[in-house]
Structures are given as structure tokens and as C-alpha cells.
Design a protein around this nucleic acid. Structure first.
Lengths: 195, 195
DNA sequence: AATTTAACTGAACATGCGTTCAGATCAAAG
DNA sequence: CTTTGATCTGAACGCATGTTCAGTTAAATT
């Protein structure tokens, strides 16, 4: 049997990425085989190669899509306002966005070493762009005198690490809502960088 | 040829763990083969099984050793003193200890999903013990009134995530010494949890 | 109704995997 | 000097890997 019904290209394509996303996040890139992905999609392994040139591209495409979506969504939030307002917006945005995409976040942080050097460089550049968004806010706050003078680069890394860490323990069915988590983290971030 | 000189058991044994540590940290557990480990040690793959029952035990032993060493070293630091003093000690200890063992830390965080369920539970319990050390300090500080009343469990996770994140960017040959990094992070931690 | 073509199957390719084990080697013990 | 036993080799086991491709199916086009 070949195709069982209809033209599936526009259906199967996304399903391949979806399956790869879920399986990579759960078991890790190296531990997932093309045959497992194919089984999840409901096709034979060979059929995957209608939608990706190879396994590496699957990982790269997932990461690139995630980083570009993140930057695009963040761009909508970037606005005027005081550094304090902008930092609160960034903090809440980061938490909300990352809680909604735990699989993508997991992959984006854990599978960097499974990218080829060229692919790694490209993803790393996008990540750097995102970090620079926060760093710019911190620098502005220092100039306004509302944030303590400090090493903004390290502050940036520290704040992002703290915020992203929320994905390791947060469960939607847990005792705290995403909104409450946002508030708690915003409290800590605000105090940590303030004078 | 078999053995080339002398009795190597007490030399080869540690070298197997060392090689596994370095390779797992660099490429990931699933991506490293027993033959690669053997090559690094300078023996054939079969010889590894004189030192480990299987590949999984290699990963588990590395993680367990790391967590137990961490807890043992931390126990030496645990003392009396104000909550603020204890928190500073914990912060500086955590950063120093983790900067000295980037490979172990990397594995301990990235390869949890490659542990069997039983092994995972054991490592997770050790990690929880360590987190509880910090949580106890934060709770004591709240009772003393020197730390802001807050959700101590979340504060714990946030602080540890922030501190451990230092391993992702710190380079010994970089512009900052470990001592300077300790001070910067301590500044942020202190402010973040204070009233 | 005939033709084209996108979508997929199923088998095959070479290579690598974790693990086992009989046999070789050589330091140490008697 | 002989025996013992720890240490390691080298080959083999069955199975899984990413990827390719000739052939099959059925929807879309003529």
C-alpha cells in the first residue's frame, strides 16, 4: 500500500516536525531514531525524507523556528517606557512564553551540542540577539539610575538563567498559576538589579 | 598482544570513568559509544566490562559520585551563623564548586533523562537534599526577618538556577576571576531575597 | 478514460551499536 | 620454575542506525 487517502503533503510535513519535537524533548536527539519519528507520524522511515534532507535538519529547523518565533514575539513587546516597566514586561513575557513551549525550550538548551558547527553558530547568534534585548534594558536602567551599576552582561546571563529555570519545575496542574509565578519572579528580578 | 606491562586495574579503572565523564559531557551519553570510551582509555571495548557492568552504570556512577561529593563538601560548610552569612557561604560555595567541575555539572543536568527510572529516583533524591540545604537557609532568614516573606521553594529553585547558570558562560581565561564572579552573584542573590 | 505526478512502501545498503567470551599474555605467588 | 589469576584482545552475536531507491498507489490533470 502507498497513500491511503488524499494528498497528505501539507498534513504530514508539520506532523513530522511535531513528532520530532516531542520525541527529541522526551528522549534526546541522539536517542531518537528516524524510524521512531516515522512510527509516530504513521509512515515508513523513508517517507520522512520527503520533508527533511536529513535528521540534523530536523533538529536545526526546530531550534531555528523556536528562536525566530521568540524574537518575533519579543519584538511586539519592545516599546518605550521606563527601564523598570520594560524589565517587568520582559520578565513576564519570558516566563509566559517559555512555560507555553517547554518542549522547544528543552531542546533549544539541551541539544546545542548535537548541531553541526555551522548550525550551532546560527542558533547561537539568534540567542545572542535575544540576550541583547535584556541587556539593553538593564543598561538603560543603569543610566536612568534606577538599576544598580553592575556588570550588565553577567546580570543578563543570571536573570535569563533564573527565568528559564522555571521550565524545569513548573507544572500547569501544580499549586501556582503562571500569573503567580510571573509575579514571584518579577519580585526577585526587580530587587536583584535595583539599587 | 594482551597486557603490555604490569597490573593495570587500579589505573585503568579510574581512567574509564574519566574518559566517560569527558566524552559524555562533550557529546552526550547517547552519542558516545563504548568503543569511543575504550579508545580514549587505550584498550579494546570488551576490557571496559572489567570495570562496569554496562554503559548505564557508567553514567549513574558519575552522577552519584558528583552528587555525593557535592553534599559531602557542602556539609563541611554548613554551620551556625546568621541566615545572611550562611546564604553568602552557600552562594560562594556553589559557584566555586560548580566552576571547578563543569563536566560533572553538565552531565548531572543534561543526562537525567538517560537514567533508568530507579537510577533517576536516586539521583533526584540527592539533588533534593542539596536544594533543601538552601531552602532551610532561606526559611531561617525569613524567620529572622532579614529575608522577605516569599515562597521559599520557588526562591530556592530560582537561586540555584541562577547560580548554576554561571557554568554555561564562565571561562577561566576570561576577563573575570572566580572570586569576582562570586561577588557579583552574591550581590544579586542577597538583594533578590532581602526585604 | 488516459496520463501524470505527488506521496508513500518495503527492502536494501554499509556501518555501528552494546555486550559476551574463549583464548592470549604476563606479573605475582608458591 | 611452575602455577595461578587478573587483565586484556579480537572476534563474534543479533540488532539498530541513517539514508537511498525502485516500484506501487491513488489523487489530480488532461
Amino acid at each position: 500500500m502507498a497513500r491511503t487517502a488524499g494528498s497528505h503533503s501539507d498534513i504530514t510535513g508539520p506532523r513530522v516536525l511535531d513528532a520530532a519535537l516531542r520525541l527529541f524533548a522526551r528522549h534526546g536527539y541522539a536517542a531518537v531514531s528516524m524510524r521512531q519519528i516515522a512510527k509516530e507520524v504513521g509512515v515508513q522511515a523513508g517517507a520522512l525524507y520527503n520533508y527533511t534532507p536529513d535528521k540534523q535538519s530536523l533538529l536545526f529547523d526546530l531550534m531555528k523556528r523556536h528562536m525566530e518565533d521568540l524574537l518575533a514575539e519579543r519584538a511586539k513587546h519592545r516599546g518605550a517606557g521606563s527601564a523598570l516597566e520594560q524589565l517587568e514586561d520582559f520578565t513576564r513575557f519570558h516566563i509566559r512564553y517559555h512555560l507555553d513551549r517547554s518542549d522547544e525550550v528543552f531542546i533549544a538548551y539541551m541539544e546545542l551540542r548535537n548541531l553541526t558547527p555551522e548550525n550551532f553558530a546560527e542558533i547561537e547568534a539568534l540567542r545572542r540577539d535575544y540576550e541583547n534585548e535584556l541587556e539593553a534594558i538593564l543598561r538603560q536602567g543603569e543610566e536612568e539610575g534606577v538599576f544598580a551599576p553592575a556588570d550588565t552582561r553577567i546580570e543578563t546571563m543570571a536573570v535569563i538563567a533564573m527565568l528559564t529555570g522555571v521550565t524545569t519545575w513548573y507544572r500547569a496542574e501544580g499549586r501556582l498559576s503562571a500569573g503567580e509565578v510571573e509575579r514571584i519572579y518579577w519580585d526577585m528580578v526587580r530587587k536583584a538589579v535595583s539599587v
